Amino acid sequence: MNLFKRMIGVFILLSLVLTVAGCGSTSQSSSNESSGDASDFPKKPITLIVPSSAGGGTDSTARALASATEEHLGQSIGVVNKPGGSGAVGMTEGANAKPDGYTVSMVFVELTMLDHLGLSPLSYEEFKPIGLVNLDPAALTVPADAPYDTVEEFVAYAKKHPGKVKVGNAGTGSIWHIAAESLEKNADIELNHIPFEGAAPAVTALVGGHVDAVTVSPAEVKSQLEAGNVKTLAVMSDDRSDIVPDVPTFKEEGFDMNTIATWRGLTVPKDTPDEVVKVLEDAFMKGAEEKEFMDFMKSNGLGVSLKSSSEFKEFMKENDTFFGGMIKELDLNG
């Protein structure tokens, strides 16, 4: 009996030792996973979630960038479209993906607006940024025969005709609506905001004489500008747009306005290891600097604006604060 008890005791002791060793091994394994050892990352293809339909500007930018980045990453990059909810559907899926670096999400300006608009609880804080690749600022564009050729003249005209100048936008609460509201506030004028189902119909209305101005991106008026049907007075950014390099910024014209633009960048889930993010940042930023990507963006009227992971993080934070305040002021909260 004593021998039996001793055998049982030895068995229990061995079981405990093996259990502790197993836990230690598991802990070590988990530790190694969470530490983000990127020495052999990536070992398989990357999935790039695009929160919009195929064929649009975001989709086109993502596919061109993926193609230019694959050689720098050493793996293929598959683009998957997940449209819906002003981008909320795809971006939410990206935020909830496994934080191992193998699922990357393209995000855009609405990420810093959705929560404030009451459309989704998703915010930029659910992501860890890789980098910004595109920015298209709002631009004040008017008919070619409009009685003003500068922002100063436009503002003077608006002050003489309060509430009479009709400005088309891409829908109430859209980035281009907020751009017009920002101009109105900064210049201390009263405008008549006319919503449309997107920028394209707003531009069509401008050319048809149904509105007096639009505050969409230079890319969206490019063809009409080249046809001589419209003229762009200024852009809402710190630097001039490559699409309309001869057009001054609002700041050059004496208006201290924030940059208001649609933009696109790359992110991963917030718990992704920093070492993995660094690998992705290096590869995608090199891809964005490739001639094929630059040429594609230029030929399609899309602006290239590159910001590192840390710069993009600060940029999103600034956008979130700015749009949060603006949306509250406009009483557009959900």
Rank of each mutant, 00 (worst) to 15 (best):
P45D: 06
N169M: 04
F11D: 01
D136R: 00
D246R: 03
D37G: 01
L206N: 09
F108C: 05
S29A: 12
T58Y: 13
E318D: 14
S67R: 12
D282R: 13
M106C: 06
A38G: 02
K160F: 02
P269V: 06
T112D: 15
L73M: 05
L18T: 11
L280E: 08
P137Y: 00
V247S: 07
A64H: 11
V221E: 07
L306Y: 01
L330Q: 15
P121K: 14
S29P: 00
P45W: 03
S182Y: 08
M326W: 09
F315K: 05
A21G: 15
L191A: 03
V203A: 07
E275A: 15
A38D: 03
P201L: 13
K164M: 10
E110L: 08
D242N: 13
D242F: 04
A227H: 02
P137D: 04
V50M: 04
F108Y: 15
A187E: 03
R240E: 08
D246L: 05
G265W: 07
S35C: 01
A219D: 08
G287Y: 02
F293N: 10
D274S: 12
V244M: 07
G325Y: 09
T272V: 08
S27L: 13
A21I: 09
P99S: 03
D271C: 04
L280T: 08
L332G: 12
T150G: 03
I243Q: 13
M294R: 14
T232D: 05
G87E: 00
L302V: 13
V221Y: 09
F322K: 02
F196M: 03
S217A: 15
G101K: 03
A213L: 14
A144F: 03
S237C: 04
D239F: 05
D282Q: 13
D188E: 11
G173Q: 07
P143Y: 01
G74P: 10
A261G: 14
M1S: 12
L119A: 15
S29D: 05
D212S: 12
V277C: 12
P218Q: 09
V151C: 02
T259F: 01
V221N: 06
F284D: 07
D40W: 00
H193T: 01
H193K: 03
G208H: 10
A199V: 05
L48K: 03
L117D: 10
L13Y: 05
S308A: 08
D242E: 14
A66K: 06
I243F: 09
Y102T: 11
K270C: 02
V167F: 07
K166L: 06
G78W: 00
D256T: 09
K278M: 04
D188P: 01
N32V: 06
F41V: 02
V10P: 00
K286N: 13
E70T: 13
F41T: 01
A138S: 12
V216P: 11
V304N: 07
N229C: 01
G118C: 14
A138C: 02
K251A: 14
D271L: 13
E252W: 09
A66I: 11
